[in-house]
Amino acid sequence: MNSDQVEFRNVSFRYNDEQPWVLNNVSFSIKSDEWVAIIGHNGSGKSTIAKLINGLIFPDQGEIFVNGIKVTADTVWDVRKQVGMVFQNPDNQFVGTTVKDDVAFGLENRGVERSEMIKRINASLAAVRMSDYIMHEPHRLSGGQKQRVAIAGVLAVQPHLIILDEATAMLDPKGRTEILTTVYDVKQNHQLNLITITHDLNEIIHADRVIVMNNGEIWTETSPRALFMEEEGLREIGLDIPFIAKLANELNKQSLTLTKQPINQKELLDELWTFHLNK
């Protein structure tokens, strides 16, 4: 099945009548099993999209559908069962007094059986490398550790759609890569959708598609590879492409023409190798 999992139809939103639109006539759809990255500078409207998807706020104009359900005040609880969110600030999403209790919270709410619960708690904590901290108090963890526990909590309830709203911003680079890999693995194994909201273009490399937001509107919708050629345009809207993409663009300027835009170091080295052999 390849139906639309999330659909925005001409959605506009603002926090009150005197303020400018945070989102202005935004339409897009995300297919089942797709990984979509939403990127944009601070204040571009990208986090507002996340809040609209699970009904934390409702659009002033337009409609939003999640797995065929129109998001309204009446359907919001059904929608939230399908959407797992991890927010930017881990301090605002803790309820348990230990790491274990915290991960258990969502499972208890869903009435998951005890033996299954223990299995899922262990597996999701292992996935985020926090097994050693199972009995620790969440508020004593460092920022990155907290965020990993929050991600474990979402992984444990196995929702259809996981939204990471700048959830990796506070992790160290290795931790960041590992979390993204982990979430991607879960996505593959469980047939779920993934929306990653970020302003770090290093994080979008594995996404199927990218939606770039600027001042409440969709600036472009494209693939990561195609986006990396838009260095100048992205810089103008406060974004920065990865090092490899920049180097590739510089090499292109130096009459060392690459056949395609590389998205990682290996691809760039392969390109240079081919160039080196063909001359």
């Binding site: 944009g40 500078h41 601070n42 911003a169 506070m170 302003h199 810089r235 406060g238 974004l239 920065d240």
Partner: peptide, 13 residues
Amino acid sequence: DEPTAGLDPKGQQ
């Protein structure tokens, strides 16, 4: 202590 965390790339720089 991580003064640029959460800022967009332009803000960070």
